[in-house]
């Protein structure tokens, strides 16, 4: 019961993410999503595995505390509030997100996955989150929002990983977490450099770098 609730909340946060225009709100939703997913393994009753508990704690710490900290710092440095004109508008984004979620349901139904899992919503939700992350990455213009998209993308991967959490070595999970951490870190540096070089964090300027 509890896992299904968490999954539903995750999917809702997906919609909120694409619909919001305020950068800080988007960050909050992404963080919330991360924390929700961090709690997922516990809700699934996997508390008996020590390494899973450890990972859940690590995930919640990193996503709920460390990454928001990095975001706040970046936000202070670049002084932006809103994503002004994204490549794809908010309404269209929302519709695309809904379409993606529907597609995920269809796909998940047809995917040849491990049978017998009790949480039928897990796979569609993870695909939908993946899709949302991509949508954010593709449609947004500000580098910070794109980082948010990256974060959401990772949440999707994490959710997918939960499907196999009992079989998966802790090393892989830890690897994903580390990957995320380094990714955000590097993007933070990149954002700063974009700002210094172009006096704005609009990734459109990066097109000038092409060969």
């Amino acid at each position: 019961m509890l896992p299904d609730l968490l999954i539903a909340l995750t999917m809702l946060s997906n919609f909120s993410l694409v619909a919001t225009s305020r950068v800080s709100k988007a960050i909050q939703f992404a963080v919330l999503q991360g924390v929700l997913l961090g709690l997922m393994p516990l809700a699934m009753g996997l508390g008996r595995h020590f390494h899973i508990v450890l990972l859940a704690i690590a995930a919640v710490t990193v996503k709920g505390w460390f990454i928001p900290f990095l975001f706040r710092r970046a936000l202070r440095q670049v002084h932006i509030q809103r994503e002004v004109d994204p490549y794809i508008g908010y309404t269209v984004s929302l519709m695309l997100c809904a379409l993606g979620t529907g597609l995920s349901l269809v796909l998940a139904h047809n995917l040849p996955l491990k049978a017998g899992t009790e949480y039928t919503l897990l796979v569609p939700a993870s695909l939908a989150t993946l899709f949302t992350g991509f949508l954010l990455l593709v449609s947004r213009r500000k580098a910070l929002t794109q980082v948010v998209g990256y974060l959401v993308l990772e949440n999707g991967i994490y959710l997918f990983g939960l499907l196999l959490v009992e079989d998966m070595p802790a090393l892989v999970e830890a690897g994903i977490l580390l990957d995320l951490f380094v990714g955000i870190f590097v993007m933070g540096i990149v954002i700063n450099h974009i700002r210094v070089a172009f006096d704005s964090t609009d990734t459109r300027h990066l097109a000038e770098l092409k060969d």
Partner: peptide, 22 residues
């Protein structure tokens, strides 16, 4: 195909991923 815009590149990834899934 090399537009220089990051979102376009990401779009390539997304489309490839979707095509693979389908």
């Amino acid at each position: 195909a090399q537009g220089g815009a990051l979102p376009v590149y990401l779009l390539y990834v997304l489309l490839t991923l979707l095509a693979l899934l389908v």
